[in-house]
Design a protein around this nucleic acid. Structure first.
Length: 678
DNA sequence: TATTAGTCTCTTTTT
DNA sequence: GAGACTAATA
């Protein structure tokens, strides 16, 4: 076979691509791929190589961290095979490319009948799950306890960690939520109630998509059936998987044959959702003989100066597959810029971005990264003031706004009338209906065979009027001839929007946008599932998201920046309290994760890297002490002896000319005026 | 019983 | 600056 098309790969990459191709299927392989080492390209080439050798694209399972990554990977495979074979497979041919959660949802839905699930289940996102947790919490009387019971979000976080880490509650509490340890018995009751509620309501949460999948895989017959669906299983970003995901993977391919995992332990940044770097560290030894390991340490992305600085940051990490990235790209040292205030930092970075653009670097080739979504607030104000378009990734989303959730709840309730969270929200949209009336109606229909029909037959609650009748009549018709259903939902919701929100005008635009998105899906079920598992992640600065061909600056949390690269990267708030976050400095493991976060941020840069260190913060958070300024220190990950890796400088805003000019000569106006007449 | 105004606490990162 | 809970009012 002509393998010339693999010549542009380096030796290590080629080794990773061709490993085990002689035997069928190949023995297990771990690829440790440093930042910018051509990881995606290598993975794409390995898949392409399988295809070129005749593998069936429908029998390849590709799991990535985000849907976006899956789409990108499939596109690259398609491009390569098109080049080599003169014809592509069509990107859809890789039918099993997606996230763990997305694939899980599909497996569960397709096999619903045989595993005791109703195939019409709806999926709760984090917020919905927290709301359901809250309903159960109230039901058990846990909201009226002597001392305060943990809030719904905290309860869900505890539950989620137990599930994903496969840890008993007591251990999770003592390790990660010590301030809640006193509530162990109540939490146990709460979680039992939460699970029962989900099952009664025919809903699954994110964790269920993995948990249910893992549990059915315990059944050898089912595991064999599912495992036989694919000859090759390839997993990207393996360092950010959790115990549950590893359990699924090993159940799919117990002997490791056909299994390839790719990752970088130095870039593990998802421990907060129970990802464990042990998965990647222990992968080789999970098989006999152990899995082969190929390490990609040549970096094609960044300049030597940037890599040198990033390597220094990661050097302190305790346990890892050691690799120092190297490159032959030269360039300027990264800069470490101190600034007096966050406001100065915002001005400085906007100046920088615009100066880079003057030199011909598009806005799209630049990104501003930060630890926490709220850190970019001042920068966003400054960008808006100076008319620089931007798109922000991470943090609050389009889907979190009340009006969008209302409309989606309408559709979800119509899809699955047993979904109490959705129903509770929807019914209270009717004027005159509050929690009590809504609860009663839901109780009345819960056990019915056709809940929506039962709802329509119910006498309207006392203070509700025509709106109620309109709603119960509309609900059964919200899924018919998609996407007309969403238009009907919006038509009913319109008057409520006007009534509930001052800025109805502004919010209506969002709903129209949602309707546009909905039009791209074949059915209501697909729309709801995909939107929950893969929410639109960007929010625009000014009116809506800029058009595709427009130039705009990228603002992103470091987490959302994973796997991406830009010519110029600016990192905000490289100070203690931000990186590492105040909240993440409890254990040394948490601090190590924060270190890797800074490493990930720095290694996103190709040519130019600038770290901002504002020295003074205005905090409004701690109401106990009132608003005040606090002094910040340069991040502990950049100690003094490391500063020679940077150009260190201070920036201050240019002072208006009238202020810096030497003081004007003193003039005696009175004397002059007297002189006029003297 | 629905709704609103007022007081209290907690505030990250995401599928 | 928002969410959670309470008290007061319609």
């Amino acid at each position: 076979m002509d393998l010339a098309w693999l010549d542009k790969l380096n030796d290590r990459q080629r080794q990773a691509v061709e490993f085990g191709m002689g035997s069928e299927p190949a023995p297990p392989l771990l690829v440790i791929a440093g930042a910018g080492s051509g990881k995606t390209s290598t993975l794409a080439h390995r898949v392409a190589h399988l295809l070129v050798k005749g593998a069936d694209p429908r029998r390849i399972l590709l799991m990535t961290f985000s849907r976006r990554a899956a789409v990108e990977l499939a596109r690259r495979v398609e491009r390569i095979t098109a080049q080599v074979l003169g014809q592509g497979y069509g990107a859809e041919a890789l039918a099993w490319a997606g996230t763990f959660h997305g694939i899980g949802a599909r497996i569960l839905r397709e096999n619903a009948a045989s595993i005791g699930l109703n195939p019409d289940f709806t999926i709760h996102d984090r917020e919905d799950s927290a709301d359901l947790m809250n309903l159960v919490r109230h039901g058990l009387g846990l909201s009226k306890t002597e001392s305060r019971f943990p809030a719904k979000g905290t309860c869900l976080a505890i539950y989620s960690r137990c599930v994903n880490a496969g840890e008993p509650l007591a251990q999770t509490l003592s390790d990660h939520f010590p301030w809640c340890a006193a509530w162990e018995a109540e939490l146990k009751r709460l979680f039992a109630g939460y699970v029962a509620a989900k099952q009664a309501q025919n809903v699954l949460d994110y964790d269920d998509l993995l948990l249910a999948w893992a549990q059915v895989m315990d059944e050898p017959g089912f595991a064999a059936h599912i495992g036989a669906l694919w000859d090759h299983v390839l997993i990207d970003e393996y360092q950010d998987t959790n115990r549950l995901q590893a359990r699924i993977l090993l159940a799919l391919k117990p002997d490791g044959r056909g299994l390839t995992v790719v990752g970088d332990d130095a870039q593990a940044i998802y421990a907060f959702r129970a990802a464990t770097v042990r998965n990647i560290l222990d992968f080789p030894a999970a098989f006999a003989p152990p899995a082969a390991v190929v390490t990609l340490d040549r970096n094609y992305r960044s300049t030597q100066a940037i890599l040198a600085a990033a390597n220094r940051v990661i050097e302190g990490a305790a346990e890892r597959f050691t690799k120092d990235l190297w490159t032959d790209r030269t360039g300027e040292k990264p800069r470490l810029v101190t600034l007096s205030t966050e406001a100065d930092q915002a001005r400085f970075f906007v100046d920088e971005v615009l100066a880079n653009r003057e030199e011909g670097m598009r806005l799209k080739d630049q990104a501003v990264l930060f630890r926490t979504s709220s850190h970019s607030g001042q920068l966003e104000v400054e960008l808006t003031r100076r008319n620089v378009p931007f798109v922000k990734f991470g943090g609050l989303k389009f889907l979190d706004s009340a009006h969008v959730k209302d409309l989606l709840a309408l559709l979800r309730f119509a899809q699955n009338p047993r979904d109490r969270v959705a129903g509770f929200r929807v019914l209270q949209l009717v004027p005159g209906v509050g929690p009590v009336a809504a609860g009663r109606a839901l109780d009345a229909i819960a056990a019915e065979v056709d809940p929506l029909e039962a709802l329509a037959a119910l006498p309207p609650p006392p203070r509700s009027g025509a709106e109620w009748t309109g709603l119960v009549a509309a609900l059964p018709r919200l899924g018919k001839d998609w996407p007309a259903g969403i238009a009907r939902a919006r038509a009913w919701y319109e008057p409520q929007l006007e009534r509930l929100h001052e800025d109805a005008e502004f919010r209506r635009a969002d709903l129209l946008q949602l309707e546009q998105i909905a039009a791209g899906y074949p059915s209501r079920e697909r729309f709801l599932t995909d939107l929950t598992l893969d929410p639109p992640e960007a929010t625009g600065g000014q009116a809506g998201v800029p058009l595709k061909d427009e130039d705009y600056l990228i603002l992103s949390t470091i987490h959302s920046a994973k796997g991406q690269e830009w010519r110029a990267v600016h990192v905000l708030n490289v100070v203690d309290g931000c990186i590492p976050s105040d909240l993440g400095t409890g254990t040394s493991a948490e601090i190590e994760e924060e270190r890797r976060l800074l490493y990930v941020a720095m290694t996103r840069a190709k040519d130019r890297l600038t770290l901002g260190v504002p020295l003074r913060f205005y905090v409004t958070q701690q109401s106990r002490h009132g608003d005040r300024h606090v002094h910040a220190m340069r991040s502990r990950f950049l100690p003094r002896e490391m500063l020679d890796a940077f150009d260190v400088m201070h920036w201050a805003p240019p002072v208006a000319a009238s202020c810096i000019a030497s003081p004007p000569p003193k003039i005696d106006v009175a004397a002059k005026m007297r002189d006029m007449w003297g």
